[in-house]
Nucleic acid binder design. Structure first.
Lengths: 217, 217
DNA sequence: AGATTAATCTAAAGAGTATTGGAATGTAAT
DNA sequence: ATTACATTCCAATACTCTTTAGATTAATCT
């Protein structure tokens, strides 16, 4: 059985393994989360609101497709993205989805709720503003994710500490908050809180994965 | 039901529509074929060796995911890639698969059979050589695909005409043959034929999609 | 040693997908 | 009008995937 058709079938079948891994909403959410940094099964389950058992099963699939790697640390199993290419694929697939699927764009729009929440998409100019201190780039993800990687000149105040650490932010600067990416709601909530307290705040819908800064190894 | 969890579920579910479309080997093959140019259901079925009915069903899925568009031309229905982003996604997913899956790399290696079939990957230098006429870049795909788009300075001799049109190729130049991409076997067969006839021939494993030249509209 | 915690494995039910054959639709050729 | 052709629709079957529950493994804590 070495005919051309047989060979081709083998080839596309392998590529389809990646597609299969990316065909479940839960697995995609796990991938996005792992793009923020390595995590244990328990943490992944908590953050995604999936049962530990089911999380484990989905991670098993991701590992079968070689998209994630594991390392046993004591009684924990730490999962991480296999390499940067996986993060780039996550960005590629969700970007294509946003490009093609009206339904997705609709949900994203209604997520923004207030029209002025979107920050400028131009990365260079944002970095320039942040470097000069004209805006404060605020990372509202958990501290360990900030530690693993963060946008240039960002400072870390996790969302659940924001209320009591408001005083750390200058009142006269615009705050640009970001979190895990366009589907994460933490930055949205942070901006809502900041505005209620009188700050000028914008949400940057991108995260480290979209900026090509996913931590690996 | 406007709680955050519900919103997130909607978001990832939409992205998973793209993953689902890419989770079947046959659909991937159809996408790759459509990256070469628009085609009718009949042609797609013939080229992929899938029954017309099943081809139609898979194309239906691809259209549901908004990855392809259709246009009725007389009694034919012409399918095409929705836009360039789809071709880029095809390249992204098969590149990731090659990066991550040993099994895939193994099949590709045994496909090359002769070690020297691989041509230089550096695009600029290949284009330079082709411009100066130091090598002949040969497109062995069907004529309509060549017409839709081809690599710079390439000339077209479809594989099934190659034997009787050999005289069109200069005997003293290296021939670099390419076809639809790394999973297409036409360039491999062309190289085998050329070598048997005494030509110096190499296979370029990339096609128009990999070079970002997929025809759209 | 025994209890606790993290994670996985196995089995089973339900939901969804791939594939095929037969019928139906719409267009073009005779 | 009738016939041929390209494509899709519908229904049935086999298969695969998702999810949950119960049992199991392995490391840590008391």
């Amino acid at each position: 059985m070495n005919n051309p058709r047989h060979i081709k079938d083998l080839l596309y079948e392998q590529v389809a393994r990646i597609g299969k891994a990316a065909s479940s909403p839960k697995r995609l959410e796990l991938i996005e989360l792992l793009c923020q940094g390595e995590k244990s099964v328990e943490v992944l389950a908590r953050e995604t609101a999936i049962s530990v058992k089911l999380t484990s099963a989905h991670l098993r699939e991701l590992r079968a497709a070689q998209l994630v790697e594991t390392e046993k640390q004591g009684k924990y199993v730490i999962y991480r993205i296999a390499n940067r290419a996986v993060a780039e694929f996550w960005v590629a697939i969700h970007s294509l989805a946003e490009d093609r699927l009206v339904e997705l764009r609709l949900v994203i729009e209604q997520m923004a709720s207030h029209p002025k929440e979107l920050a400028p998409k131009d990365r260079d100019s944002l970095v320039k503003l942040a470097r000069r201190g004209d805006v404060v780039v605020l990372d509202v993800r958990p501290a360990d994710e900030f530690l693993a990687a963060h946008l240039p000149f960002a400072r870390s105040i996790p969302l659940d500490e924001l209320k009591r650490r408001l005083s750390e932010l200058p009142r006269d600067k615009t705050v640009v908050a970001y979190c895990r990416g366009p589907y994460c709601l933490m930055a949205r909530d942070a901006v809502a809180l900041l505005r209620k307290k009188g700050y000028e705040a914008l949400r940057l819908p991108e995260g480290v994965a979209e900026w090509g800064m996913t931590p690996v190894r």
